[in-house]
Design a protein around this nucleic acid. Sequence first.
DNA 1: TGATGTGAACCCATTCACAGCC
DNA 2: GGCTGTGAATGGGTTCACATCA
Lengths: 228, 228
Amino acid sequence: MTDSPRRRIPEAAVGRLPVYLRILSDLVGEGTTQISSEQLAELAGVNAAKVRKDLSYLGTYGTRGVGYDVQYLLYQIQRELGLNQSWPVIIVGAGNLGQALANYAGITERGFHIVGIVDKDESKIGTVVGGVRVRHADDLQQIAQSKGVSIGIIATPAPHAQEAAEALVRAGIGSILNFAPAVLAVPKGVNVRKVDLALELQILSYYEQCRSDTRGDSQGGQSTPVSA
Amino acid sequence: MTDSPRRRIPEAAVGRLPVYLRILSDLVGEGTTQISSEQLAELAGVNAAKVRKDLSYLGTYGTRGVGYDVQYLLYQIQRELGLNQSWPVIIVGAGNLGQALANYAGITERGFHIVGIVDKDESKIGTVVGGVRVRHADDLQQIAQSKGVSIGIIATPAPHAQEAAEALVRAGIGSILNFAPAVLAVPKGVNVRKVDLALELQILSYYEQCRSDTRGDSQGGQSTPVSA
DNA sequence: TGATGTGAACCCATTCACAGCC
DNA sequence: GGCTGTGAATGGGTTCACATCA
């Protein structure tokens, strides 16, 4: 969406690099040192040509006739994604979702750490989630600047999402992950990604509906939704 | 991937329909009765041609020279997405994420209801989250069949995701929303969508890195603060 | 020999531009 | 005149096929 003049890697490929990353990380743990595009594709659930094309955007790190060195490739992907650093992240909204994110080990395992959680609800302020004390939304800017935060997560209800986004932008944060089902208006240059959990269910249910329309179900069963 | 039952809507368009749906729903609440593709596009953060093309897949529900009737369009999108029905959903994994999902109002607001949560951890079984009592994973099939569930959510740690997927498939569930950062192997015909929260952060941090690259800030200082 | 890296072909999605209807 | 609906053009991403090189 934002136009980087030097955006080398296509967006679709960027979205797959972390998948390869995770697999390579597992492989290192198992002591595997070499891997072919064919094998990596199998593990990632994509095809080999795509793997090779994706990796070629990083540079020519493979060896023809042999494959890729697992550790070296791992390092190169990490470097490209900026994950040889640890990114401080701040969460806006300490409700169910905000708490779950703060407690989610997968986030810290992959190079991020939650340095702050803010909310406007007085009853939540002072509580500790994921090892971080919830502070008042007014402190957002102070926290962001003192910790050098450049990534913010919006985990508020939809009606407060825009407000949260504006506060994040004011605090100098340039990349926002938005979990609220709302369209955010932000200044140009700010990166926004939206994740809408219920939307994923809605899309899935569409395909489920297509599935049962086709009637080709073998023994699946009677799974028919009840009417509302 | 699968077949073409009939006039199938392109995947990209299906992903935007719920966005329009939500906006139209809000508009109904505000008493708005008519809307143009231009206005809807503005609210959805896309361009007008895309809105018209997307809506044209549903049928010709607009009026030239006028626009779309909000309520009628709302109904048509709901029907196409299968949301005039209520879908029973089962969650595998009662950890932080599973609990957050069960408690997440947005899910029930949009036509889904959680009819079961299962886990293997004895200490979690019997606890109540989101108004549903956590039951043992062994009961999955029984719950799924008695409630007519066709959509399952995997909210387990990555190492248990494949196992969870297999249990869901055995229980006759044909659509899976996977929150575990793992690639699932499932039989043909099973719909799987993956949502990886940490992956979203990794992608975002890549663009954040690009952002500061183009700006020349090596330091994590504040970047383009803009007035709200 | 065997697997990478990559132009070229292909396919899907987006955007354009305008015909058609209100 | 205004706005929808849609063929046509454009662009991005995926797949193919093979030249290339350890």
